[in-house]
Design a protein around this nucleic acid. Sequence first.
DNA 1: AATGAATGAGCATTCATTCAT
DNA 2: CATGAATGAATGCTCATTCAT
Lengths: 223, 223, 223, 223
Amino acid sequence: MTKGQLRRARAPEDKTERRAVILRAAEALLRRDPSAGFSVGEIARRAGLAKGTVYLYFGSREEMLIAVHDAQMDELFNTLERALSKPKVGAGTVARAVLAFLRHRPEFFRLSTSCHGALEDSVSADVARRHRELVATRLTGIGHRIETLHPGMRPSEGATLLKNSYALMLGLWQLVASPLRVTGAAPGEQEPAALRINFEAQLGVALKDLWNAAVRRGEGRLA
Amino acid sequence: MTKGQLRRARAPEDKTERRAVILRAAEALLRRDPSAGFSVGEIARRAGLAKGTVYLYFGSREEMLIAVHDAQMDELFNTLERALSKPKVGAGTVARAVLAFLRHRPEFFRLSTSCHGALEDSVSADVARRHRELVATRLTGIGHRIETLHPGMRPSEGATLLKNSYALMLGLWQLVASPLRVTGAAPGEQEPAALRINFEAQLGVALKDLWNAAVRRGEGRLA
Amino acid sequence: MTKGQLRRARAPEDKTERRAVILRAAEALLRRDPSAGFSVGEIARRAGLAKGTVYLYFGSREEMLIAVHDAQMDELFNTLERALSKPKVGAGTVARAVLAFLRHRPEFFRLSTSCHGALEDSVSADVARRHRELVATRLTGIGHRIETLHPGMRPSEGATLLKNSYALMLGLWQLVASPLRVTGAAPGEQEPAALRINFEAQLGVALKDLWNAAVRRGEGRLA
Amino acid sequence: MTKGQLRRARAPEDKTERRAVILRAAEALLRRDPSAGFSVGEIARRAGLAKGTVYLYFGSREEMLIAVHDAQMDELFNTLERALSKPKVGAGTVARAVLAFLRHRPEFFRLSTSCHGALEDSVSADVARRHRELVATRLTGIGHRIETLHPGMRPSEGATLLKNSYALMLGLWQLVASPLRVTGAAPGEQEPAALRINFEAQLGVALKDLWNAAVRRGEGRLA
DNA sequence: AATGAATGAGCATTCATTCAT
DNA sequence: CATGAATGAATGCTCATTCAT
């Protein structure tokens, strides 16, 4: 008495597609329902698959989360690369690009945080390594591009700048952006002013500070 | 079926002490055993108490975690204040102070991350508010101190600088510091170079960039 | 650091009073807060005593509940005796008296039900016996009175009539009276008509049926 | 860590059967071991299933109890219907049928009492409604049958009679029947005579009283 | 390949009862 | 006598994972 049962994925491309369906469902769940813990069961339901099927494509719940995260990071890196190809790039351009990305992927940092936990305990060394290599490769690549744009920069300073920028965003999000939609905030209740900041504005300014400092350091060496 | 049973905490000081014992146990668990999920049972065991006893001092597991976090944040803020009272403070001084703190509290950011999750769902609005107020108060206070040290700074720019600094640390930790002790890292296995950075060095530089940029902005206004 | 600590009950009458205070608190709790399970802690709180103190006066939670129940049964029996002393008693008089009692002791049957469970498992044979003897004594006494009023009745038929009456009330309450205030009954939601009866009216009629049948049986013998 | 693991219930009939297995286990537990609280764990053990499996078939412990109760009520109602189809039915026939039922389902009223409590707090409004509708439907149906048998009866008087009968049984059971098997009744120990009644005899007489009174009321109207 | 029933370890939480103070 | 801190067994429930079909 099997139910709707999707067409079986026989060809490799079908399998890739099936994998993607699951990832999309996971992403959507993360985005849509912040509270309802992302259980495998719920993800399967949204993907229109049975729970067991998910395990044909992912070794564990955590691997799946990491796969979603990897895909999103890839998107983010692509966004960055596009931004950096524009003429007259500066911290402003980059910040705008990133913020646009975040607006469409509001779950990005939540997921990032979850994955970080997963990488710590429940994931095979292999999966963890693959993930880190992906990040490293892209960081280095884009870092080089930045170094090219700013001749005085030393090798790896570009990647460092990127890491700092990413860190700033992630930390800032955790510190201030997310609490805004917290705990059914009694109507009329307010965040303390010291925390009630404009995530985007503050991020923009801080990114510029990091970026300009790095650029200037490079220019200093040239002079 | 009484076991060892600690001396009963009758006087208020005793109770405060008992509370502290639990918090210390939780802290230690967090620090020592990164994998073993911090269950109430395990914390109680380490505190030498029965599980039920913990619930005499904390309304729920999450409240307890938040209390640990609050205490650690307080420590961090105190560290900051001490650093800021020194003559000739600069980003370097602050960075050194913070790094020293983190070396003794390596679990700090893991806990911070956990609490962030807890604040999102499982905690009473009241507890959440109290926590945020604590943070806000200290941020504002220390922010003022910074503003005083740098006359050109505008009100709240000090707190903003602090938040950015905190965010940077938190994000950087999540990005690079913690993975270093991951999953029984197969001996000989190496982090990709692009990630295998010196957390402390990078944090120091980035903090300085943020700090100097803020200071300079202030000085610009004075001139 | 003992708190308000009531004056110690030294004299026997003080002890009796202390016992009564606890019973009253338990009763009030039962009456007022139908949901909040009657925990020993809550009862102690309402009595203005510490939990341990309660255990000085009652061997266990169940003993306490039974004591409350015994007291209430005594009241009910007194009510009955008063009703039976009136001229021209009939089922109507009795029913009215009982219903008046229930209106002031709406928790009566809930408690009765609880105690029944307690008697089954968690109470010492001694306490159970004492309880049953109390009931038996009063039933027999009042039964005799009824038999006196209706000359044709055989010995013990009075008590039997009483037991049937009590049973009818108890069962009817459980079947229909209590559900009326159930589960936040969605506004507009209605009990099925077959259940939505008037407890008092139905009880009145049924009691009369039992009563008249018994009386008539007696009269038949006389004729 | 798979144990014996029953054959999986794939077809709907299998699932129904599995559900029934659980219900039977719960029933048996209720019947056999009056003391051992009916925990979900124990029921699962007796059903030869894992705890989690039970939750595939019932939303909560209370839902399960209510399901058992519903099934037993259904049985009782069927018994009643059968009794009422016999020629020359009277209270005696009905009483005998019911008593036969109770002899095979001695746990019936204990469960009834438990469910009553559950319906008050811990059950979803939906489940509660479904239960009450079941009862209402059957009561009305059988009530009609009674009304048909006794032409003078008014609509709903049949159902009322049923409710009174049920109430009488339930109350009588609670008052006298169950205590008989109490707390390891010290050998030689006796119930007080006033309580040591013959449940069946007393119930039979009282039911007849109620029944005859109702019937007579109808006949009175016809005359 | 896909399914989804079954599993069972894991965990937070409650509360009657005890006993040191 | 009174207190209330401490206890810890008991229990309902979740959910990632497995595997028979």
